[in-house]
Design a protein around this nucleic acid. Sequence first.
DNA 1: CTAGGTCCTGACACTAATGTGAGAGGCAAG
DNA 2: CTTGCCTCTCACATTAGTGTCAGGACCTAG
Lengths: 126, 126
Amino acid sequence: MRIGELSAATGVSVRSLRYYEEQGLLSADRTSSGQRAFGPDAPARVDLIQDLFGAGICSATMVDLLPCMSDPGARTPKLRSRLLEERDRISKTIANLTATQAALDRIISENNPNEGRLPGLELRAD
Amino acid sequence: MRIGELSAATGVSVRSLRYYEEQGLLSADRTSSGQRAFGPDAPARVDLIQDLFGAGICSATMVDLLPCMSDPGARTPKLRSRLLEERDRISKTIANLTATQAALDRIISENNPNEGRLPGLELRAD
DNA sequence: CTAGGTCCTGACACTAATGTGAGAGGCAAG
DNA sequence: CTTGCCTCTCACATTAGTGTCAGGACCTAG
């Protein structure tokens, strides 16, 4: 699979895919002429990388974590504690986001007193 | 309240406070000599700003949103839809994070088969 | 063989928030 | 007045991921 195909398959830019490889998140064989040749599980790998990026995990951390994600045999105590640490960080982020979302909801309902009411029964705004 | 006090009160660096003011997130009077003088609600405002930053809302968006957060009278249809949009974005982020957290949990339990077991009853690792 | 589309590397730009440092001025205590 | 700490502005650096451009090499269709 060439890089353009992988890009099309995942929706991730060619530039980013090269970056992922550079960071050691993604491995690719090379053809004799030097072009990248990705294996069939590359798209799933890219999807996973994107999810982890979305969770705010940086590439350096991913480099540490990824080996033990696909291969439980790669577990070490340090790696396990690293996983727990990240899980914790995500938990805290979720808690913060949930609180912020609740705050926004409060503001939204203040700003829109008709929320959830039937049309035609709007409150007067003034 | 001078900038150093506000920094101490909130745990946010002086540099960041100046940045918040520059971005229009935070207002400060000036003394005749040009030093910033923050009002008594500045700490709460800074806390709010920090929460929103934590939720991944950038300063430009905050500039739009903040006026209608403290003042429901500032509501406009555009502002309301902006609020809803951000609330939605946060919802999606929470969903993604929750999924990622679940994935990490799965990996953690694979990596740690003794999770939740009583000490002394560990499974053999090999 | 050639033309067009794809790929390569390398380098520089951008964003957004924050760090850091320089040089200058403010202000309160001794 | 001086000393020491705080503040001011300006400006450049950093981080991480991504965009974009340049110059060159590859490869497949015609």
